[in-house]
Design a protein around this nucleic acid. Structure first.
Lengths: 112, 112
DNA sequence: TTATCTATATAATCTGTTTATATATTATAA
DNA sequence: TTATAATATATAAACAGATTATATAGATAA
């Protein structure tokens, strides 16, 4: 059974930014990539990704262009911007800190 | 600067359950404990804790009683129930798995 | 006596996720 | 050849947990 969507909530943008850091991608592919990496515990809805795209484009974190495939369902590709890369780096540092703190708060600090 | 509240969102209940697993406590104390453990990165609002208490009491995860202090501001104590303990144990297992997956998704899996 | 700390409470608002729905092309199985 | 599944994007409405703002009140320190 998948975890509550609230657990992913603060990280959706960061995860999208990480994927786009490696290469341009599109909604359907990103959704599948997250679900696959989630090993059955993570279930992101496509609507979540597409609404995140809108926000992130408005915020200048990503830009978009249509794929030039002459056949097949049309794909809308996304690229990470400089602002997006900068935010991703900040979030990366933040995650390393917050995951340690959450570990303390959820598991409890090591007591001797 | 504190992290987005969305990062904590899925864990507020779990953290409260962890604190109440050790001993009965009350809103003000729990709030301070989380903020202190958060090392300046976590800023939980008291309203968040009190609204979580309502939910959790309704859900049978905690029970409440008034402190018997004869002076000082009144304190409302909370105890974890059996259902609360069970949920906490489930969330603990879940966190160990999800933190690893989030690590992969945010930092990126180790590539050789 | 004024300010700060301790302590609880809730209505209204905000915001990211889900549900539901719509549209359209391609590939595959019956 | 026809139905179905997979691929692919999009958005309005509903949902739910967190924040903001506000209210109340006793204790303590300046």
């Amino acid at each position: 059974m998948a975890v509550s969507s609230d657990v992913l909530r603060g990280h959706t943008e960061t995860i999208i930014l990480r994927i786009l850091s490696a290469k341009d991608s599109y909604g359907y592919e990103i959704t599948k990539e997250i679900i696959e990496a989630g090993e059955g515990l993570i279930d992101v809805k496509d609507a979540t990704i597409y609404t995140a795209f809108r926000r992130m484009e408005t915020d200048g974190l990503i830009t978009t262009y249509w794929g030039d495939g002459t056949f097949g369902a049309r794909r809308k590709y996304y690229s990470i911007t400089k602002a997006g890369s900068k935010l991703y780096n900040d979030r990366l540092v933040e995650w390393k800190q917050i995951s340690r703190l959450l570990n303390n708060l959820i598991i409890g600090p090591i007591v001797n």
